[in-house]
Design a protein around this nucleic acid. Structure first.
Length: 199
DNA sequence: CCATGGATTGTCT
DNA sequence: GACAATCCATGGA
């Protein structure tokens, strides 16, 4: 990654979670595996921080959540509901338990490998609209499509050897961004810390 | 379109 | 022992 784009990304992530989250919309998430590259435009995010009863970090540092307390740009992958992985990017500053949950993408490259991992079959010649729209439109779908698992927890997107990367595009299109309560919570249901790109 | 229930296990009380 | 930052199938309007 060129030095100036790395600096821009570091600056973006060195903010409180609720400021950094909407800025990640439109950025590109890329996953490199042994035999493929897959990427998408980040289209839905949620913010979590230490003052937030809904955050995994609310009650302090544990072995599970330690990545959220690490340097901005650290990947936090957690396992939930006995079968799903979700990924966050740690933000703000080291020692602060803050992060951005990546909830949805718009597919960009590597559709074939994402399709294979999500549906266990090759990408068809004429894929159904429904399956395309449901390929990476959820936090655990996204990790499955990009082959993200617990082995990615704790690595930094700034590490040149990292298989996960985030890029800020040269020019972001003009998006309509919506702000809503977060999904699936039993605490802090009214906090408007979910943002997504409309359409 | 919406509501409901089952799957399945790491983490924390 | 309870429950989870989810997903999918199913059944009804």
């Amino acid at each position: 990654m060129p030095q100036d784009t790395e600096n821009r990304l570091r600056q973006l992530l060195s903010r409180p979670a609720h400021d950094a989250a909407p800025l990640l919309l439109g950025c590109i998430l890329t996953s490199v595996t042994g035999d493929s590259v897959a990427s998408g435009i980040i289209s839905e995010v949620e913010a979590y921080d230490q003052s937030d009863p809904a955050s995994h970090t609310f009650k302090g540092l544990t072995t599970r959540n330690r990545s959220m307390f690490d340097e901005p740009g650290t990947v936090y992958v957690y396992f939930t509901y006995g079968m799903h992985y979700c990924m966050n990017i740690s933000v703000h500053k080291k020692g602060e338990g803050a992060g951005i949950l990546l909830r949805a993408l718009r597919p960009l490259t590597g559709m074939d490998s994402m399709w294979q991992r999500r549906y266990g079959e090759p990408l068809p010649l004429s894929p159904s609209i429904k399956k395309v729209s449901q390929l990476v439109n959820g936090p655990a779908k996204l990790t499955q499509a990009l082959a993200v698992g617990k082995e990615h927890d704790g690595l930094s997107i700034f590490d040149p050897a990292s298989p996960l990367r985030i890029d800020i595009p040269e020019k972001k299109p003009t998006y309509t961004i919506r702000q809503t309560p977060r999904i699936g919570l039993s605490q802090a249901k009214d906090t408007l810390w979910r943002w997504y790109i409309e359409s």
